[in-house]
Design a protein around this nucleic acid. Structure first.
Length: 401
RNA sequence: UCCUCAGUAGCUCAGUUGGUCAGAGCACCUGACUGUUAAUCAGGGGGUCCUAGGUUCAAGUCCUAGCUGGGGAGCCA
């Protein structure tokens, strides 16, 4: 019995009976006990008490053994399963878009380079440039920052598709909401407009909340008690209320009329800052908000231009606590308008020939959005740091385990 | 990347205006006790005060730089 310490691995055989002890309903009257693995209490870092999230992050290889991380990882699994179920039940096809991409036109941030070159001595051309023709893919390649462009190819062939895979950003972002490696869900639907897109986003999020409430009740109760007392109430609130849908221009008017000083100026040509989004969601509406029709100058090249010539059919879903959880748009299906926008923004037009072919050959209206999986798990668990809702977080200066 | 706070025992932390300041709780070890649930009681071991410089008679404490972590911001999902 001396060797049975916190962390040891046991096999117990016996009969399960109603317990007389407090705080538990059943207990095993053991007839046989096997000690599979001892656990030296002097060096085992986990104790039978609460640890800080920061400490547990340093021992990420062991932290699943705690109640909290067990609950978080089970909910993470349930959400992943529910996402596939949701789309499968609605006739969407799971499209596997590439992890390694030869395109640097997504414009979604800094990328990780992929190469087999010896960095100390890469092949050079006669003019001294790195000779990518000699590299594995005979061109510069990167880890994907988004599967969207390929997703559009799938949608314009199969109808409704979604992607669900790892995504990489080499941004030097040190925040509780960013990872260098994260998972993203990107549905893309042919013949859907922005309203259809918003309907899908709202229904999808509510389905996932409902699914988690129905299937992970014990874990949610635990997290509600130990991590975030408002968790279940917040989930049920989002589930029970319609998201506010509001054009960007109307949001600016609300912010300009608000009786408070902004650290960042509010103006029609400016993107909304965290303080503005937070005000709309947490103070003004007290409800999830979908903002639409942003100025084209602050949004990506592929978004459908409105007739006013100023705005695009973009939508951002803003959630309490985590800000932008979904970003999406109706896509520009007009070849000329799309090429013009690409040229204006100085993007490498010739690298996008395959993307433009969708508009060249039987183009169609279509829409889609991206949902950051870990931000979803964050919202669903009440955890406060994104590094604690993925098993092995990758962040600047940290790729341990 | 910027702002800000922090780094002292395995963990969570206290440490006054620079001068008995090497401390507590938990954990661990020993013993007692026990229908216990983060048990209880008694005793014990355990420290590069983040690192490197500097100021000073004297630095855990003040200064500089770096590293690590938290919070906020930017970038974004």
């Amino acid at each position: 019995m001396k060797d049975i310490t916190t962390g040891a691995s046991l096999g117990v055989t016996g009969t399960m009976e109603a317990s007389q002890g407090k705080g538990q309903s059943v207990e095993i009257l053991a007839s046989d006990l096997v000690l599979y693995g001892k656990c030296d209490p002097d060096t085992y870092p986990l104790q039978k008490k609460g640890h800080s999230m920061e400490f547990l992050r340093e021992i990420a290889h062991l932290r699943f053994r705690t109640n909290t991380f067990g609950a978080v990882m089970r909910i993470r699994h349930a959400l992943a399963f529910a996402i596939h179920k949701y789309y499968n039940d609605r006739g969407f096809f799971y499209l596997h878009t590439p992890i390694i991409t030869g395109s640097d036109a997504e414009g979604a941030g800094e990328m990780f380079h992929v190469t087999t070159f010896d960095l100390k001595n890469p092949p050079r051309t006669e003019s001294g440039e790195i000779d990518y023709d000699k590299d594995f893919f005979a061109k510069p390649t990167n880890l994907t920052v988004s599967g969207q462009l390929e997703g559009e190819l799938g949608a314009l062939s199969l109808g409704e598709i979604y992607t669900f895979g790892p995504t990489f950003r080499a941004e030097n972002s040190n925040t509780p909401r960013h990872l260098a490696e994260f998972w993203m869900i990107e549905p893309e639907m042919a013949f859907w407009d922005l309203n259809d897109n918003m309907d899908l986003a709202e229904d999808f999020l509510k389905y996932l909340i409902r699914y988690t409430l129905d299937n992970c009740r014990e874990d949610l109760d635990f997290l509600n008690k130990m991590i975030d007392n408002g968790l279940i109430e917040r989930l049920e609130f989002v589930l029970g209320n319609s998201f506010i849908r509001l054009p960007y221009t109307e949001a600016i008017k609300i912010l300009e009329a608000a009786d408070r000083k902004w650290e960042y100026q509010v103006g029609w040509w400016r993107d909304l800052q965290a303080e503005h989004e937070r005000y709309l969601v947490e103070v003004h509406f007290r409800c999830p908000v979908i903002l639409t029709d942003y100025p084209k100058t602050i949004k990506a090249f592929y978004m459908k231009q409105n007739d006013d010539g100023l705005t695009v059919r973009a939508m951002d879903v803003l959630f309490p606590g985590i800000g932008e959880i979904i970003g999406g748009s109706q896509r520009e299906e007009d070849l000329d308008k799309l090429t013009q926008r690409i040229t204006e923004l100085n993007l490498p037009l010739k690298d996008l020939w395959w993307y433009l072919d969708t508009r060249r050959f039987g183009t169609a209206p279509h829409s889609g959005f991206g949902l950051g999986f870990e931000r979803l798990v964050l919202f669903m668990t009440g955890m406060s740091n994104i590094r604690d809702v993925i098993p092995f977080p990758r962040t600047p200066r940290n790729a341990e385990f």
